[in-house]
Design a protein around this nucleic acid. Structure first.
Length: 203
DNA sequence: CCACGGATTGGCT
DNA sequence: GCCAATCCGTGGA
């Protein structure tokens, strides 16, 4: 299904680029988490870019705080935050140290570890096959399915049990672009990117 | 110290 | 389609 050989792990330099370029290039890449003998894998199909320098919706817009400090790290690590008193959202930090840029993972297409994801999300059997499309079709859902919580924030994606596998870049005619979802500031920036027609999109 | 509101989700109307 | 749930980081007093 996919090759997990080391040479395909995305290197640091992939992440140390402008956040919009990284966001688009993340589509189609495979997110992996290993936990003892379990492996979780999902193909990224929807993302949003956040840029602390000009984007009022970004957590980093008002500078570094205890909550967002990981966003200011050198690109290539996870930034996980807690919101609405209930959900974790997982991001990939991009750019050079000090920039406060990140890409929110809004949806993935499950590839492996699906039974573990079902346990993490629902803690029961699926009621129907249709629930598969509800497994990882949103930022809180992806985090729950993979088991990402605040203890994962700051993890290095080039040297830990969480990493990304390189895959061919999506053809640009497969990439949809829209405004971001669920924000109240800088609402018009067209910084959401998704694979057109993929059944695992958040909407 | 306290009030506010959020990069969401799922259940109910 | 609408709205409550449910924490806690953040910012103003």
């Amino acid at each position: 299904m996919f090759d997990t050989s080391k040479k395909l792990v995305l290197p640091k330099k992939f992440y140390i680029r402008p956040v919009l370029a990284v966001a688009k290039d993340l589509l189609g890449k495979v997110l992996i988490k290993t936990e003892s003998k379990k492996m979780f894998a999902g193909r990224i199909v929807e993302v949003e870019a956040y840029d602390g320098s000009i984007d009022e919706a970004s957590h980093s817009y008002n500078g570094k705080t205890k909550r967002n400090e990981v966003m200011f790290n050198t690109g290539g690590c996870l930034y996980v935050y807690f919101t609405y008193g209930a959900h974790f959202c997982s991001n990939i930090v991009t750019g050079k140290e000090g920039y406060g840029n990140a890409v929110l993972i809004r949806a993935v297409e499950p590839l492996a570890g699906i039974d573990y994801m079902i346990v993490n999300r629902f803690n029961r059997e699926l009621k129907s096959e249709k629930e598969l499309c509800n497994l990882t079709s949103g930022p809180g859902k992806v985090s729950k399915a993979f088991g990402f919580d605040s203890s994962y924030s700051g993890m290095d994606l080039t040297n830990s049990s969480v990493y990304l596998l390189d895959q061919p870049r999506l053809n640009s005619n497969k990439i949809g672009i829209s405004k971001r979802i669920g924000i109240t500031r800088s609402v018009d920036l067209p910084w959401r990117f998704f694979e057109i027609g993929n059944p695992y999109l958040s909407r």
